[in-house]
Design a binder for these strands. Structure first.
Lengths: 152, 152
DNA sequence: GCAATCTTCTTAGCTGGCTAATGAACCAGC
DNA sequence: GCTGGTTCATTAGCCAGCTAAGAAGATTGC
């Protein structure tokens, strides 16, 4: 199929990069989950836990916003974290609809944060700071393009 | 919280980039799915379809390998694609366990490929080729780091 | 030629993302 | 103070990834 060579190579590149991102996400999640399993956590739940740790007492809606996920998605994670004894729900006084979320002693265990930080360091080992900055800029640009398209 | 500034910034950077990748993946999938819905497709199913189109007649195991997903994951997508009339399974003569996969006329509809290519172009609009190359290198490096860790 | 092993596909069940819709509580305005 | 809209949490149901395990067919090796 005869097409302009430049357009062709750009398409190949875009094909690869989107696939690479999708694939990397899966590898990342699997890597984290496998290593965190004996702590009783997953990547998503650990993220919920550490985000809550920075702001205890907030509601589910607020935590969902901080995590940039939807309320029903968070709800199931909270159920699991409560069942496993990492956090607890507590009805608020001012508003009977709201639950305030707090860490339990187990949830406050520093090993989780250390584990996450160490893994992140391992994953980014050997990548110069400026390269990460550059990647961040490009990924942000793609994200902006998506939001731009969504507005159409 | 007083910590060494350099270590702090590196951690912040890594924190951000992994989150950005996870988030970008979700946006990408949602963007594609929303726009492809009236064609009866999703990002994953379209990918399966276009990958099969490049190599019709292969088995499920082989297609799963090409897509880098597991057989049970692919099986459900094939079920859906068959139900929607995009592809068909055909028992092979040489091996009663295998199914050969073929596109139907609907599956061969060029609109799908065009749609996917156009969306990819839109997503990467305004990003220089060399930046994409750079991002690919860094993402590959992270992927390598993950596989390295998995081997431990 | 039969037993053991390997392959292919399937089933079952987990996680985590989403939307749509519901119920209960809150709030604003009349 | 009631009515109507809004917000919070939940339920239900979809898609897509995974692992573990099973059934049926093929292959290998003795």
């Amino acid at each position: 199929m005869p097409r302009p060579p430049q357009s062709d190579s750009v398409d190949d590149q875009s094909h690869q990069i989107l696939d690479v991102i999708l694939h990397l996400m899966r590898d990342l999640r699997r890597c984290y989950d496998r290593r965190a399993r004996d702590m009783g956590l997953t990547l998503s739940r650990a993220k919920a836990l550490t985000t809550l740790a920075r702001n205890e007492g907030i509601t589910q809606t607020r935590l969902a916003a901080d995590l940039a996920i939807e309320a029903p998605t968070l709800k199931r994670q909270i159920d699991a974290l409560v069942a496993d004894g990492f956090i607890r729900r507590e009805p608020t006084q001012d508003d009977a609809r709201k639950n305030a979320l707090f860490l339990t002693d187990r949830g406050r265990d520093a090993a989780i944060v250390e584990f996450t930080m160490r893994l992140r360091r391992d994953l980014l080992e050997g990548i110069p700071r400026q390269d990460l900055d550059q990647v961040m800029r490009v990924l942000d640009q793609i994200t902006c393009n998506i939001h731009e398209l969504d507005r159409t």
